[in-house]
Design a binder for these strands. Structure first.
Length: 255
DNA sequence: ATGGTTGCTTAGCAA
């Protein structure tokens, strides 16, 4: 089972790249974040013509997540189902065979201490409670997404400069740790304990060309899925060329 | 760098 995760920063701006990505990698499921459109503007036909099924949770202008699957999914659900009022479309899940695939676009948080920062921390706590309510760590669960958190200093190009800043603050890292403590492991770090690899580079100031990146896009998995993990890699080529997203896709292959 | 770039929407916000 090959699963890919990509913050496309507008699916319509990235449509040609996304379709070409499917042709090149042929993932069983591609989890998208930042669609930046509602269903009325989502390019269903292009993905269907490529042989994929689309499950979307769109939003006008901001956010929006989707599962693009080579096979029909079951039990597709959007949001956390906790009754909390939430206008943001940031979470979708479905079942691909015996694997629960969960796709999240964690709030950016803007800056430490901002209203959006506390919204982010609360949203992460809601996601943790959702996991605890709906799954067990013995289930086959793969949780992917743009977490907007660099798990450790190894995941940051300038740890001293980023210390305590948004994407790196201790409260954010603690919230991620609490999610992992449900029973999820960072698949990239499992395979590469010491490797520096980034998934996001700021558009500004030649961030990619200078490799000023952060590893904030993660594939987490429960122990039975970690046992099945064969390969995991970042497709840096997608950050090159004309009109890239500011994020590169990450791909994991499970037996 | 209270900057720099991109996308959506059309001047300002979000990232």
């Amino acid at each position: 089972m090959k699963a890919a995760c990509w913050n496309v920063n507008s699916i319509n701006s990235r449509l040609d790249r996304a379709v070409a990505f499917l042709g090149r990698h042929r993932p069983d499921v591609l989890c998208l974040q930042e669609l930046k459109c509602l269903e009325d503007k989502f390019p269903f036909d292009a993905f269907r013509n490529a042989g994929y099924h689309c499950y979307t949770h769109g939003q006008k202008t901001y956010n929006g997540v989707a599962l693009i699957s080579a096979h029909p999914l079951t039990d597709v659900r959007a949001g956390f189902l906790d009754g909390v009022k939430d206008d943001d479309s940031r979470f979708i899940s479905g079942k691909l065979g015996d694997v629960n695939v969960l796709c999240g676009y964690i709030p950016n948080g803007q800056s430490v201490g901002a209203d959006k920062y506390y919204f982010k921390l609360n949203w992460l706590d809601r996601m943790r409670r959702h996991l605890e309510a709906e799954y067990r760590n013995t289930d086959n669960v793969v949780l992917v997404g743009d977490f907007n958190i660099a798990p450790e200093d190894l995941d940051v190009y300038d740890p001293a400069g980023w210390r305590g800043k948004i994407l790196c603050s201790q409260k954010e890292r603690d919230a991620l740790t609490a999610i992992k403590e449900f029973g999820l492991e960072d698949c990239f770090r499992n395979k590469f304990p010491q490797t520096v690899e980034y998934t996001w580079w700021d558009y500004r100031s030649m961030g990619f060309q200078k490799n000023l990146g952060l590893r904030i896009d993660l594939i987490l998995a429960t122990p039975p899925m970690v046992k099945r993990l064969e390969r995991i890699y970042v497709d840096r080529d997608e950050r090159k060329g004309e009109k890239p997203s500011d994020h590169a896709p990450i791909i994991a292959e499970f037996i």
